[in-house]
Structures are given as structure tokens and as C-alpha cells.
């Protein structure tokens, strides 16, 4: 018997319906983007065009795909375990890879939507309201493409890190805090680039992108290997 997309979809669909009805996830989705759009906006609207020339302020907004999916994914397994819903799911024919991929897709979809939406909003604000000099300094084709490509790569890392933690912790809150912590390095690199502390050469960008792509790919396998049915069902409640 082979991998079943029906089961992946069933799991993802269930998760998305639950998120829509979970207040804490909705508020995370609302608050986190604010935290990451405000600093670059304040900077862009208060600095001179020459000060904005180095760095890429909007890269700071990669904090959204770094943090939002990490928080959701960190809850994904341990949350079900705490609610006692994991056992019935695990008695169905679902494989751990299917379960985890379903949950990952469910964490990815709203995170990407939110990240792109807020990024689009930021671009529009700069285009419409910033001074001509500031707009030229900030809106660069290469940087926009980089942001579009890095958003899912960063989200992927955040999801697998969060989910790996989720399969190995007993407490949902602890998992969410650890998940945020693990996503932090990615965000810190982004922030350093944003404010010009690190110069983002093409080589560095390609290197980072490649590393994230590899991590996203192995993340699924590593997390699946960490997912131990017996431990999840029996180890201390």
C-alpha cells in the first residue's frame, strides 16, 4: 500500500477547520504580522533615502513566516496528544509521514497567505506614501524576488523544527516557546541583513537559500523518524 494523498488532505483539512475555530491561532495570525511590519515601516518613513540605501528593510518581515508557522506546528502533535485525539487517529491506516505532511501543509497555507498579504501591503504602503527617494531605495526587483522565494523556505524550516519539537515534548506551551526559539536564528539573519549589518551578497543569499531548501526536504524525514507511535500514546500524560 502506498502513500495516500487522501489521508494527507483529510488531516490538513481537519487542521484548517480547527484553526479557524481556535481563538489563540487567530490572534497569533493577527498580532505577529504587526510586530514584523511596524519596525521596517517606521524606519522607512522616518529615514532619509541615503540611509535606506544599504540593507533591505523589508527582509525583516521574514519574521512572519519564521514565527507564525513555528507556533502552529509546535502545537500540532503535542496538542492532539494533550486532548487525547492522537490515539484514535493513530488506529486508522494513516502513516506518520502522511499525518505530519498533512499537518505541515495546514501550517504552511495560512502562514504563506499571511506573509505574502502583509508583504504586499508593505510594498503598497511604500509605493504610495513614502518619498520617491525612499521608495526607490526600498523597492528593488531582486530583493522582492528574494523575499518571495525565501518566504516558503523559511516557513518550511519553521514548520519542521516546530513539528519535531512537538513530537518530543509533553506540554503544548513549552513546545510553542521552543518552536519560536528554534526559528529565531533564521529571523536574526534576516534582521541583520535588513538593517545592513550583513551585506547580502548573491553568494550568501544563494547559500542560505540552498541550505534552507535542503533543511526543508530532510525536515520531513527527520521529523517522521522522531515520530514514535508508542511513545506518543503511552509516555506520561
Amino acid at each position: 500500500m502506498s502513500f495516500s494523498w487522501t489521508r494527507v488532505r483529510a488531516m490538513a483539512g481537519k487542521e484548517l477547520t480547527e484553526y479557524r475555530r481556535t481563538g489563540s491561532i487567530i490572534s497569533t495570525m493577527a498580532v505577529v504580522p504587526l510586530v514584523f511590519i511596524l519596525p521596517p515601516m517606521i524606519e522607512i518613513f522616518t529615514s532619509s533615502a541615503s540611509a535606506l540605501a544599504s540593507g533591505d528593510r523589508l527582509i525583516y518581515m521574514l519574521g512572519i513566516p519564521a514565527i507564525v508557522p513555528a507556533v502552529i506546528a509546535a502545537y500540532a502533535v503535542v496538542g492532539e496528544r494533550q486532548q487525547g485525539t492522537l490515539e484514535p487517529v493513530l488506529t486508522t491506516p494513516i502513516r506518520r509521514e502522511e499525518l505530519l505532511l498533512g499537518k505541515a501543509i495546514a501550517a504552511l497555507a495560512p502562514s504563506l497567505l499571511m506573509s505574502y498579504l502583509v508583504y504586499g501591503l508593505a510594498l503598497a504602503l511604500v509605493e504610495i506614501f513614502a518619498s520617491a527617494g525612499a521608495a526607490t531605495a526600498v523597492l528593488k526587483g531582486g530583493e522582492i524576488i528574494a523575499q518571495v522565494i525565501f518566504t516558503p523556505l523559511v516557513a518550511g524550516w519553521a514548520i519542521w523544527a516546530g513539528m519535531a519539537i512537538s513530537t518530543r515534548t509533553r506540554d503544548a506551551r513549552v513546545a510553542q516557546q521552543l518552536g519560536t526559539l528554534v526559528s529565531l536564528p533564521v529571523f536574526i539573519v534576516a534582521a541583520l541583513i535588513a538593517f545592513g549589518a550583513i551585506h547580502a551578497s548573491l553568494g550568501l543569499v544563494l547559500g542560505l537559500g540552498g541550505a534552507l531548501a535542503v533543511l526543508d526536504f530532510v525536515g520531513w524525514r527527520v521529523t517522521s523518524a522522531l515520530f514514535d507511535r508508542e511513545r506518543l500514546i503511552t509516555a506520561g500524560k
Partner: peptide, 17 residues
Amino acid sequence: RRRIAVMPESPGLYLRL
């Protein structure tokens, strides 16, 4: 698992669904 079904000790339903 495809051939069996289990009604566990605690129901484990998704309460928001």
C-alpha cells in the same frame, strides 16, 4: 489498521469540529 477499528477508552473527538 485498515481491517480493524478501535473504540478507545476515552473518545478523543475533535471538540471544535
